[in-house]
Design a protein around this nucleic acid. Sequence first.
DNA 1: CTCCAGGGTACAC
DNA 2: GTGTACCATGGA
Length: 323
Amino acid sequence: MSDPAESIREGHARPQQAFPGTVQQNVIIPVPEPFHFQMNLDYLSRSDNECMFHVQNDKLYKLVPYGEKQMEHALIEISAGQGHSLNIRFLGDVPPSEACRLAAVRYVQIWFDFDTDLNPFYRMANRDPLLKETVKRFRGLRLIGIPDLFEALCWGILGQQINLPFAYTLKRRFVEQFGHSVSGGGHELWQFPAPEIIAGLEAEQLTRLQITNRKAEYLIGVAALIAEGKLSKPMLQQEPDFAAAVKRLTAIRGIGPWTAHYVCMRCLRVPSAFPIEDVGLHNAIKLMLSMERKPTLDEIRQLAQAWTGWEAYATFYLWRMLY
DNA sequence: CTCCAGGGTACAC
DNA sequence: GTGTACCATGGA
């Protein structure tokens, strides 16, 4: 993808009054092929307990952080545009600044992983017995990211060893207890709790949300590292390679190989990140191969040899077969 | 009641 | 380095 500033085209910012008192201004961004907006919306709709964005009437609503220390937020609506494009509409009560619009465009590009060319993955997967079916069924789905490092780490920790619906419930309680909401255009969206807030909590403030004491300690510890500037997304991105980022992450209490790879996959956008211990991956393989039992790690390593460089996308597409 | 869930730590050897 | 108990809670 070229410089995002060059890829922005002005939409028709007519002064409509669909929501009296609000200012509408659109930005249209091109999308790479293959991309299928509805396929991605279907993924984003998989939990009705999701609290960090809304899907409604084929449109996606999200609060995008930007500006100094990510302290400002833009409420945006993302919808399919004409041809190969997405339309971003700003729902704030003032016209978005240039910085705000650039941030929103870049956020969407990162969220949907527009920087990755999926064609090599599809060429590989079309020949792979395990992936052939899922890439046919979900063609145009991209690996949806969690751009914020703290959010990605928290989501990984919260999801450890519990079922997914309960993990969503815990995230919602966590966000609604310690985050802030912003309203606009008839929608209310939440910003994820700041690490500085979580770092100052007592474990008991999290355990009363039914988060286990162990995970409460993990969350507070990770929040403190980020709040103190000892851990950041640029810091991990500047590591010489992916293995170094994993090593740095797994040195943190509460972050094992699964969580480290999960964060590399969803936040750092490492295409070869591979949470091989993932029970969802195991169940997907068991399902696709009609196995009586879950595959062993060695068996998965054998199957994944063909995925080299695309382990993250392979995992994401296999997960999709389960939900 | 039992088993499982998008794991990780602490400790043994 | 590999193996094991334990963590703690909701859902099927």
